[in-house]
């Protein structure tokens, strides 16, 4: 058992080391956006806000269009997203992470809000693993006083990719298979394994 833990830790360290260079670039970029947000929050700096808008605005529009909204609605929701970025810039906690994640969560909530107001059903994709998530025994007991550990770096890359495509990009299983150049069966298998692994990782290690 101790060996398994040691191997997992080693794998994790190696993976983190490999990611260091990529992370370095992302950190520098992120730092720049954090500074912009701080300027918006503290001095209502319009040019810092415009930099954020010019960089993230088109991406947010792309996000809405990818989630099956018309370009007109996407444009409107970009406006609403950035009104919130302006108003709530002081909510961003720079120690907690990426500006892109913060903007993503606002954009996601604006989309849900739009769906609710227009009584539109959420596109939930074809989630074969739905039964896994809610079957008896799915609920688990958390370890009290558990230390905060990051579980995503421990997920095999191919499972991470499938999760990203199917849940976050909301691609159908077939489209995810085509994009990743694997079979439909492999996609389904990877989702199943990823969800199983995440359940174990969230409980405190594989």
């Amino acid at each position: 058992m101790a060996n398994v833990v040691a191997i997992n830790q080693y794998k994790l360290k190696r993976k983190r080391l490999e990611q260091t260079t990529v992370d370095q670039d992302r950190r520098v970029q992120n730092q720049k956006w954090i500074e912009c947000l701080v300027k918006v929050a503290k001095t209502q700096d319009q040019s810092a806000f415009q930099s954020l808008f010019n960089h993230f605005g088109p991406k947010v529009k792309s996000f809405y269009v990818a989630h099956h909204l018309s370009p007109q609605i996407a444009e409107e929701l970009v406006q609403e997203t950035f009104i919130s970025v302006w108003r709530y810039a002081n909510y961003f906690e720079s120690n907690k992470g990426q500006v892109s994640t913060w903007i993503y969560t606002i954009a996601r909530n604006k989309k849900l809000d739009y769906f609710r107001k227009t009584n539109r059903q959420i596109n939930t994709t074809e989630l074969i693993s739905d039964d896994i998530a809610v079957e008896p025994g799915e609920q688990y007991t958390t370890r009290i006083g558990e230390e905060l550990t990051f579980f995503l770096p421990q997920l095999p890359d191919e499972q991470y990719e499938v999760i990203k495509k199917v849940y976050f990009e909301q691609l159908s299983h077939q489209k995810a298979a085509d994009t990743l150049n694997i079979t439909l069966g492999t996609v389904k298998g990877r989702i199943r394994s990823a969800v199983n692994n995440l359940n174990k990782l969230m409980r405190g290690g594989l």
Binding site: K59, K61, S62, G97, Q98, T101, Y104, K164
Partner: peptide
Amino acid sequence: ELEGIGGQYLNKLEGLPLAENAF
């Protein structure tokens, strides 16, 4: 942590041009 996947996805998206006077 899972929302971080969304942030990464957003980061990598190719942007679509916004209306000229959007800002």
